[in-house]
């Protein structure tokens, strides 16, 4: 099926992570223009090398360094993107981080880091990108949440709280901006094979058949396909304020 994403301008955070790089790859394969907002330029080189190993052209992928906790910096970067590409069709909020530790042992900086990275930065960026989307009278926002937003686990209290916040953000923003033809949806990945989930994978190996109906971890591609589905007006033009759980049946 043609998702009609050719030359759509996609802004993406977390593009150098396990799920994010696959989302980049899939958008590029659909012919979209991908702008990765990254913290460190060297990570973008690694991403381009990885894409090249998959024989995916890097001609339409760009990077802008951006501090997602600095509203002025975000504004400048979004203006630069608009200056160059004229519009922003799709925003994918995929940046995230987790520190696994019992809540009682976390210090304030850990809590700040997880709430900021997983929630505040995403809000600041979305707020700025709504400007061009309002003007275009069109846009799609896909948030990469987590299954932990609705089913918790040990050692991830602030992360789960932030992701639950992201879910509420998704739902309520969808209500606010729907009439302006801007769709807001989210995916909730469960345990996906990435660097971020390695410690979990090591711990859960023997429990996986019980925990997941499908009996295995998910693959980044199984998440990215859902992100593209929600991004495309061909497949999701009447879908907003909703969530796709990609968890192998973890919450059933």
């Amino acid at each position: 099926m043609n998702l009609k994403l050719e030359d759509k301008v996609v802004v993406l955070t977390g593009g150098t992570g396990g799920i994010g790089q696959q989302i980049c790859a899939d958008f590029l394969e659909e012919g979209a223009i991908v702008i990765c907002l990254i913290r460190k330029a060297e990570k973008f080189e690694k991403l381009k090398n990885w894409l090249s190993t998959k024989t995916i052209s890097t001609a339409k992928i760009y990077a802008n360094t951006c501090n997602l906790l600095d509203a002025n910096n975000i504004k400048a970067v979004v203006n630069e993107v608009i200056e160059t590409h004229k519009r922003i069709d799709i925003l994918v909020n995929c940046a995230g981080s987790v520190v696994e530790m019992p809540f009682a042992l976390l210090d304030e900086s850990h809590i700040d880091q997880m709430l900021n990275t997983n929630l505040k930065g995403m809000m600041l960026l979305t707020q700025e990108i709504l400007r061009p989307m309002f003007r275009q009278k069109e846009g799609a926002i896909v948030n990469v949440s987590s299954i932990t937003a609705i089913k918790g686990g040990r050692g991830i209290v602030p992360y789960a709280a932030a992701k639950a916040g992201m879910d509420a953000f998704t739902r309520t923003l969808a209500i606010e901006v729907g009439r302006k033809n801007i769709r807001v949806n989210a995916v909730r990945p469960g345990a996906i094979e990435t660097e971020m989930s390695k410690p979990l994978e090591a711990r859960m190996d023997k429990y996986i058949p019980d925990a997941m109906i499908l009996g295995r971890f998910g693959k980044p591609k199984e998440v990215s396909k859902a992100v593209l589905f929600l991004s495309s007006n061909e497949t999701a033009s009447y879908i907003t304020g909703t969530f796709i759980n990609i968890d192998g049946g973890f919450i059933v």
């Binding site: 709504l130 400007r131 309002f134 003007r135 606010e176 009439r179 302006k180």
Partner: peptide
Amino acid sequence: SIDLVDILFELEF
């Protein structure tokens, strides 16, 4: 209120 945001964004632009 959302129209107003829309209107302000467009005038800013």
